[in-house]
Amino acid sequence: MSDNHDSASGVPTSGHVWDDDLADFVNQPPKWWMLGLTASAIWVVVYLLIYPAIPLPSAGTFFKGIGLPGLNVPQPGVDAKDNNKWTAIKELSQDQAELDAVRKPFEDKIKVMTPAAILADDKLTEYVTRSGKVLFSDNCAACHGQNGKGTFQSGKFAMREQGYMAPILLDDDWLYGGKIDDIYTSISGGRQGMMVAHKDSLSAQQIDDVAKYVKAMSEEGGKDKADADSAVAAGKKVFAESDCTACHGADAKGMAAMGSANLTDKIWRFDGSIAGITQTITYGVNSGDPQARVAIMPVWLKKDEQGHVVSKLDETAIKKLAVYVYKFGGGQKDEVAAAPAVEAVPAAK
């Protein structure tokens, strides 16, 4: 090779000549460039050994690498001699610890605060609504719908439920009360709707009459309006004389204590058509009748005899959910929480 030189310049050539005098020069790349190339090649080997890239039996397992002297990444449950070894799991747990450290001051406060106190704190509310969104999507949205917009039942139970599988949580109509503590109680203790079937106590005609009367209360804007409407007078009589008022009240506005529905507003828990109302009255809710409507909210907070939480959600999570649901827009102001503000007035005098 070395005796092949270009005659004009003296630059070494590869020795291959074609078209009489066309030859390939063999100029070396610059020295600094060659140094860079060599250094990169050496670094590749070093990198592969340090990081878990090549299975090495000497490292204990095959996927640890030999580690980096001076690197100290302790991880609970991992042998201390592996502290100098990097793994993706370690990085993950470090990131998680970092996140937990940010959340800790909030979580610690929520643990000892009542839902109403959390609601009064803007910053905590902001925090809670964000983590509440995740909890809600994981646990509640299956029945209550994404964002609490309700889910229509379909398939096997479609006829029986006829309407929402669980109540819409965005409106201001609450069967069991819309104050923050009521919501907390509903989630932790669960709820079971109950309405007896009237197919034996009332005749078909009576049920039809009272269904029309109930529908009129909602559509015409209250019980007074329906009472004045002679078209539904038969239903009014049935409503007053049978056991309807026992649960729904003489004013038909329902009782939060027992979860009976307000019949005068525009919101229907089940189907609001005449046929739907007739079915609800005839077969009841959770009455045991195979045709009855089903309305069950499971118990979300369960404790064993020692008082340890055994359910999927603990008190903190349920507090978050209560605040999150309250903030949907239908939450009712708590008079008790507002009371101290009133008392503060004479003190200021």
Binding site: Q146, K149, D171, D172, G221, D265, K266, I267, G329
Partner: peptide, 18 residues
């Protein structure tokens, strides 16, 4: 504007947007 749902019917029949 909230997209899911677009609006909510309240108990007095009013329509609420978020």
């Amino acid at each position: 504007p909230e997209r899911q749902p677009l609006y909510v019917t309240m108990s007095d029949g009013s329509i609420q947007n978020k």
